[in-house]
């Protein structure tokens, strides 16, 4: 089957200015993500992993280089359409004040439409329809993350960006969310870019894996090969240290 590129980064740099001093959050990052695949991005805290995600749907703008989504440079897209095409789920699963139903219907409400059968979305993410009238902010961490994913799915995104979505959850909830995301990928052919600090998770779910360190993409490759035969010494050291710590 022919592989179609869904997201492509070409020499992308992002500079942050702190007290008048310029700092590279990302430096000349290039890479492609195939349609329907799962890219896992790993690396130390503050290495620029989340910055890559925010650039893909223009929640932040690259200072150098280009990012193509579905063959079109992100700045050529209508911004609202791009953000619906490339959905994002945050670690904190933020909720607006209001009920579960109001939060779930938000993406369509923003377009002046209403959501038919919201319970179907809850069912898909494994939440009971009885929760529709509950205050969204009262949900547990795992329930909130499910609702957050369901809400993002209402826009029917072709690309889903996941920013440490399981890191604040207990192991059972984390595993359930992971299974849910795998199901989204399998059933909807959604391309997924998943930032995670959990190496075992990155290994389990990824098709491709990127290692980002100090703003640079130091290594990338098919996930299995990436973990079994890392080439770059920095990757080897990072994987070795983390594996040792987790044992």
């Amino acid at each position: 089957m022919q592989k179609i590129t869904e997201v492509e980064l070409k020499n992308v740099s992002k500079i942050f200015v702190n007290d008048g001093e310029e700092m590279y959050a990302l430096r000349k990052v290039s890479g492609t993500v195939t349609k329907g695949s799962i890219l896992t991005i790993i690396g130390p805290s503050g290495s620029g992993k989340s910055t890559i995600l925010s650039l893909c749907n223009l929640l932040s703008t690259p200072d150098e280089g280009e990012i193509y989504v579905g063959e079109k440079e992100i700045r050529e897209w209508n911004i609202q359409e791009l953000r619906r095409y490339v959905g994002i789920a945050f670690q904190s699963a933020p909720m607006l004040a209001g009920t579960v139903e109001e939060n779930l219907c938000l993406p369509l409400k923003l377009r002046g439409q209403s959501l038919e059968e919201p319970e179907k979305y809850l069912d898909f993410v494994g939440l009971s329809k009885d929760l529709l009238t509950r205050e969204a902010k009262e949900l547990s961490g795992g329930q909130r993350q499910r609702l957050s994913l369901a809400r993002t799915l209402v826009n029917k995104p072709s690309v889903l960006l996941l920013d440490e979505v399981t890191s604040a959850l207990d192991s059972i909830s984390s595993q359930e969310i992971e299974e849910l995301i795998m199901r989204i990928n399998a059933e909807r052919q959604t391309t997924i870019i998943w930032v995670t600090h959990d190496l075992n998770q990155a290994k389990r779910v990824g098709t491709q894996t990127w290692m980002v360190m100090e703003g640079s993409l130091v290594e990338s490759g098919p996930t299995e090969l990436f973990f079994s035969q890392p080439k770059d010494n920095r990757t080897k050291e990072f994987l070795h240290n983390l594996m040792r710590d987790s044992q």
């Binding site: 749907n57 929640l59 609202q80 359409e81 953000r83 619906r84 959905g87 994002i88 945050f90 904190s92 933020p94 607006l96 938000l106 993406p107 923003l110 377009r111 809400r151 993002t152 826009n155």
Partner: peptide, 20 residues
Amino acid sequence: KEEILLVLSLGGSVKQAIYP
């Protein structure tokens, strides 16, 4: 800030994000 970011990320306009 997080709520503003959420509405923008779901395809909302800046007016929709800031209105509340």
